[in-house]
Amino acid sequence: MSQVIETGKAFEFTAENVEKAQKFIARYPEGRQQSAVMPLLDLAQRQNENWLSKETLEYVGNFLNVPYMRVLEVATFYTMYNLKPVGKYFLQLCRTTPCWLRGSDDLEAVCKNKLGITNGETTEDGMFSLLEVECLGACVNAPVVQINDDFYEDLNAENFEAVLDKLASGEVPPKGPQIDRINSAPEGGPATLLEKTGDA
């Protein structure tokens, strides 16, 4: 069983992406062009609805003159390359200890009840895919879900549902904390260093 899915549709970078790809390649010394395989795979994934088909892998291989097997090795090693189609909104739900303690299970339940998907599944309308991932590195704002490129933080069942509703209706809700909080500053505003001291 092969892990690679063939679509039968030819893949080619857009003119804009070809230009970008050339920039990536130019970052590496002469003769080391194959080092650009990772940024190029990312570029291809973005152009190809957030996943890599056989055609995209081979296109990147040909673009860099790297054997297909070497491209596949990279694509299967890194978890951020998707080797099968994902929904328009790719939900990566963090389940490592801090997020779990702060209620990531509730978010999982939301996905299950509201969208009807569990880990690794995609909704029938192709809007949402769920993937449980390990630490996203935003524990201070736990629990966290990464939706495509953005982090949605400080989630709970209610505001996560609200985010999903907005996404479903075509809106893109603001990223970052979903409660009254600026980045990782204290909830409800600053709690220390309230007075200004000194002249500075």
């Binding site: 892990q3 054997p67 097997m69 070497r70 596949l72 090795e73 299967t76 090693f77």
Partner: peptide, 9 residues
């Protein structure tokens, strides 16, 4: 022949 490789991690 670069046809053999190690996939996954």
């Amino acid at each position: 022949v670069e046809e053999l490789g190690a996939i996954n991690r």
